[in-house]
Design a protein around this nucleic acid. Sequence first.
DNA 1: CCAAGGATAGAAAGCGCTTTCCATCGGAGG
DNA 2: CCTCCGATGGAAAGCGCTTTCTATCCTTGG
Lengths: 348, 348
Amino acid sequence: MTVTLADVAARARVSPATVSRVLNGNYPVAEATRERVLRAVDELDYVLNGPASALAAATSDLVGVLVNDIADPFFGIMASAAQSAIGESATGRGGGEKLAVVCNTGGSAERELTYLTLLQRQRAAAVILMGGSLEDPEHLAATAGKLTKLAEAGTRVVLCGRPPTPGDASAAALVFDNRTGARRLTEHLLGLGHRRIGYVAGPADRTTTRHRLEGHRDALAAAGVAEGPTVHGPYDRASGHGAAAELLARDPHLTAVVAANDTVALGVCAALRERGLSLPGDVSVAGFDDLPFSVDAVPALTTVRLPLHETGARAGRLAMGAEEPPAGGVERVPGELVVRGSTGAPRG
Amino acid sequence: MTVTLADVAARARVSPATVSRVLNGNYPVAEATRERVLRAVDELDYVLNGPASALAAATSDLVGVLVNDIADPFFGIMASAAQSAIGESATGRGGGEKLAVVCNTGGSAERELTYLTLLQRQRAAAVILMGGSLEDPEHLAATAGKLTKLAEAGTRVVLCGRPPTPGDASAAALVFDNRTGARRLTEHLLGLGHRRIGYVAGPADRTTTRHRLEGHRDALAAAGVAEGPTVHGPYDRASGHGAAAELLARDPHLTAVVAANDTVALGVCAALRERGLSLPGDVSVAGFDDLPFSVDAVPALTTVRLPLHETGARAGRLAMGAEEPPAGGVERVPGELVVRGSTGAPRG
DNA sequence: CCAAGGATAGAAAGCGCTTTCCATCGGAGG
DNA sequence: CCTCCGATGGAAAGCGCTTTCTATCCTTGG
């Protein structure tokens, strides 16, 4: 049978209460006793029963990190940073280590809710939601309700790269200023002289997609330039690859393409090159996010750098209560335009 | 206060036992009763208390997925596939959904052990360890002990892309045939006529690093070609970038460089290009893994494709007991040489 | 030398659920 | 019409821990 706390107590010739106190370290225990207990723990190879502990204490040391796509470095980087931050600020009950776990929603509203419920079941200490959300009103309402309930139950809720859900004020939010970033990017292209700019957007109905597209349109409108063709698709390489052809079909005279993110931009570049077009000579291409591989693309990608690592780390600290939430609950995180070789002046 | 099962029972005018049975569905309950209970659950917005449930039933629905670096698509892809597979084979107690959680060890032996203990605490249903392990004997022994204990406690253990730990026969293992893959890759280079080949290896003391390096050496030895310079470093872009200079310093006449993986290869390419060398004209470069961006590199990367997605999915199914473990517990997963533009015949 | 108070440790009551017996009820078979 | 059995539902005993409330013991001050 498994070793229980009572076994340890018997072996150390103390009461279970004392063992618990030694393990949780939030109550004075004489040094000699403590050592005796620890020795017993060691000798018996005792492992605390998490569920029992969580049940009695009414909280667990689980911290959930929900991401849209774990295979996407955008999320991987943020999640990794958050996880490190959580590991470092071990301020749990009794200074206990938190178990940061990342859950892959695949961008599905349904799975997001499922995970949220599961985490609620587990009485998670905190939940971080990363990445833009679906803008379906029904889903939004369901999510807001869940988050409110979570917060009421004492779970800290942090949004990272995701706007606060209307109707839910329970969460601290770190939101990327996608709109301004996208505007800067398109302004850059306009400044170079481009007037026919195609746009490969992310999936429709997502906040990130919409904000970036709005920024792009803002810039065009401010400059009085007509909007070029736009294609929607997932945030992956194939999407960009397919969209490039579509864009060119809709306007053969495009001189620039802005992509929803760097991964998509890479697909666009590949498709363009396959058609014999040179970059940026024939067509300029820009991305978003500045993922690690973007600097190594050929030509290197012009993009908007988001402080993924730092923001993820902050989210982790917020989840641990190791950092004060921003005033008003929401903080806008700016992106930075990074101009590299993939954009240049149009020919002629 | 939170709603408990007893509240639901009261509302549905049945006993707590009946509610539990409806929720777990492993005992006959009359249709009318079941509906009454479900309605009560709905009306009260009841959420099962995970810890309490896990305590009473002595298992939880947590499945841990340990990865070395969550920001690396190599792991992201496998983890994502595993998580999907786990979600699909919902065969838990009462068909309950499993909570697949991924934990980032950062390649640290210590954190790996910490996570394993935490998962053991939670009485996880299964644990998947992804990626090569550290070959430190002490760590290996500690891990083997942990895994054995986990298995004894009823937790299914699956290794994915990681050789079985000596002294622990409790786990099913899916291991990539890194050695053969690496051999094929170097044979390809030798076949093109390369005789001075540099090698950028992963971190020392890791199984993956060693196996790939061995395969490389196998090929050289079989062809009677002297080994070129080798540099070790982490599996990231910066490592490749720095290593390229080092390699060239050690042998200015290199005609090819083999990298530990595609990410590293990208760094190598960048550094080479910065020095004004053309690819593959002056130097051929090869990677490993065939990550999504590899086909879009310029020139496209010659590499060894590993069935990351499929293997991750199989690991997930094994963890759920939805697939028979391989005979003997270990299965070798082959890689496939993919020749693309980054390798060519050496000049002259 | 005695009372008071701080420092430790123990007793015991749950935490919310699962599950093993049992009890009950209605109908089939004799 | 009575017995027996299958189908259902309830009672209650934990699962292993935390934590409040007490009990003790030793030290300290008067």
